[in-house]
Amino acid sequence: MGRQITVELGDLEKVGCNAEWHKDESNSENEWVEITLPDGRSIHSCFSDCLNFDCRSIEHSTNAWMEQWLIDNNVPYAHG
């Protein structure tokens, strides 16, 4: 099991990120958000009301680039 990184959408918007919501065609209750960074990279969230993704460690996770971007851009986030 890894750590979950959680970021408020408003904090991402303040630094120029764009949020786009998606729905599962087979289950309209399943909705999530995709965040696009100012440099064009994007990451999908597990939820629709915040950015939430797995990052087992900043050294070894495939999503570590996003955690590092949050740190570099002083975006507050929770992890655990």
Rank of each mutant, 00 (worst) to 15 (best):
R3L: 13
Q4W: 12
Q4Y: 12
I5C: 05
I5N: 02
I5P: 07
V7E: 01
V7N: 02
E8R: 10
E8K: 12
G10A: 06
G10V: 00
D11C: 13
D11K: 14
D11T: 13
D11I: 11
E13K: 14
E13L: 13
E13Q: 14
V15M: 06
V15L: 07
V15K: 07
G16W: 06
N18R: 15
A19T: 11
W21T: 13
H22C: 03
H22P: 00
K23T: 00
K23Y: 04
D24Y: 02
D24V: 01
D24W: 02
D24Q: 00
S26Q: 10
N27P: 01
N27I: 03
E29T: 07
N30K: 12
N30Y: 12
N30G: 07
N30S: 11
W32P: 05
V33N: 01
V33A: 06
V33F: 11
E34L: 11
I35A: 09
T36W: 04
T36F: 03
P38L: 06
P38K: 03
P38W: 01
P38D: 09
D39M: 02
D39R: 01
G40Y: 06
G40N: 09
G40S: 03
R41Q: 04
S42D: 00
S42P: 00
S42Y: 01
I43L: 05
I43S: 02
C46E: 15
C46W: 10
C46Y: 11
C46S: 14
C46D: 14
S48E: 08
S48Q: 05
S48H: 06
S48A: 11
D49V: 05
D49S: 11
L51F: 14
L51E: 13
L51I: 15
N52L: 11
N52C: 14
F53M: 13
F53L: 15
C55M: 08
C55F: 09
C55G: 10
R56F: 09
S57F: 06
S57M: 05
E59V: 10
H60C: 05
T62E: 04
T62R: 15
N63W: 02
A64Q: 04
A64T: 07
A64R: 01
W65E: 03
W65I: 01
W65T: 03
M66P: 08
Q68E: 12
Q68Y: 09
W69G: 02
L70F: 08
I71W: 02
N73F: 11
V75E: 00
P76E: 04
Y77F: 08
Y77M: 03
Y77K: 08
A78T: 13
H79Y: 09
G80E: 12
